[in-house]
Design a protein around this nucleic acid. Structure first.
Lengths: 221, 221
DNA sequence: TGAGTTGAAATTATAGATAATTCCTGCAAT
DNA sequence: ATTGCAGGAATTATCTATAATTTCAACTCA
């Protein structure tokens, strides 16, 4: 990774984003600039800029003069992100479809296979993100793609929060259906399947700290 | 405006956003932190934070160690924003529809009338934004609404760039059709009209600095 | 003409000062 | 005894001032 190219603020924001997404830092916990600054061996100014970036991605919320907290989320926000992804990824796919080459679709199929073989959440999520990115990037709409990227980050966070450790391998039929429709030039069918696929919200019982079990929800597509 | 509540960085970002949107600062021109800092009577640190906010809204782009520029835009980006707005506003309207009250619809009609009577771009834009905000806010999806807000800011910028001074009053049939459909409880029809409405791209010949005329484009909905 | 170098200007980072908020402790009142 | 309210210390966010890199352009010399 070309970390030397980036500014310190960018480096810090990437590292913090990774921790928030993976759940190392819990939702609602405070991000204290002096602590972060000390950890990264810098002063607090670049840390503040990193906070602004996280805020823009929706990973943190800041209240003036009261500091920054890791954004909390509930089932409502999971649904919201799922629906926004459905709307925007369908839009992106419609524009990308004419520019999709067999080579790209082959790589997307590789990503699907990698996802099916994944034995942990983390590698599944990476494969899944690769698939979506591959078929959407050719739409050539930078603003749209960057918004979708932020939504994927949120999705990954929900996913890791629910499926902290356990993960059962499963074959992704939707991805295959989308690829097959795209190969046949049937864009509308592919878009429709993608829209449904992304809105599917998985449900899983998890044990809370108090020993009780409750349901956790996440986007699994 | 409760400017004392905000932090200095927020105040600066709002003021700069306003200037960028209204076209006072031209696309591509550099934003120099020292100059801005001097103008606002502060140091450069809050200015840098303001720049990060503008970046997140898509109004500015920053290249590491090379400064911040006002984002440029072309017809492609106008189209992109129009399509994103169509997708997201339709989504928002579907969720807002069940919560719309006659009182809200009446206020939306007032906003439409105000837009029809507007004799300059600025007040038309404000009325138009009020209309959209009124019928979408009840969807209760904060993330979606804030994304739509950023897109509206971009739209306004395109609009002001094209219709710098001249503006001809026109009655907005789409807004009326949307309201009438909503009053009859026909959400799908309202959503379809809104989707088309927002994607309509106005076209207008403008004189360039070199005396030639070319076409300018903007979202007029 | 063109490559290399120097110097001014701007961005980025550091350290320190200021102001606000939180948290704790002690006292009073119910 | 417990709740509620001050007051003050400690923590934290915000801003200013200053220093260190980096970039860009102009100028010199081959």
């Amino acid at each position: 990774m070309a970390t030397t190219e980036d500014t310190i603020a960018v480096r810090i924001s990437k590292e913090l984003a990774d921790r928030i997404i993976s759940g190392v830092i819990e939702p609602g916990s405070r991000l204290r600039q002096d602590h972060v600054a000390e950890e990264f061996g810098t002063s607090h100014v670049p840390v503040r800029e990193a906070f602004r970036r996280l805020e823009a991605q929706g990973l943190a919320i800041s209240e003036p003069r009261r500091g920054v907290r890791v954004a909390a989320f509930d089932l409502g926000e999971v649904r919201e992100v799922a629906e926004m992804r459905a709307a925007l990824e369908v839009l992106a796919l419609r524009h990308a479809a004419p520019h999709l080459t067999p080579a790209i679709l082959d790589r997307a199929e590789e990503a699907t296979k990698a996802g099916d073989k994944s034995r942990d959440v983390r590698s599944w999520e990476e494969a899944n993100r690769t698939f979506h990115r591959l078929i959407l990037t050719p739409c050539n709409m930078p603003r749209l793609l960057s918004t979708i990227d932020d939504l994927h980050a949120a999705s990954a966070r929900f996913l890791f929060a629910a499926w902290r450790s356990e993960w059962e391998t499963r074959t992704d039929q939707d991805h295959r259906a989308i690829l097959s429709a795209l190969r046949q030039g049937n864009t509308e069918s592919a878009a429709a399947t993608l829209g449904r696929h992304v809105q599917w919200i998985g449900q899983k019982p998890v044990k809370t700290a108090s020993g009780r079990t409750r349901d956790a929800f996440a986007i699994v597509g």
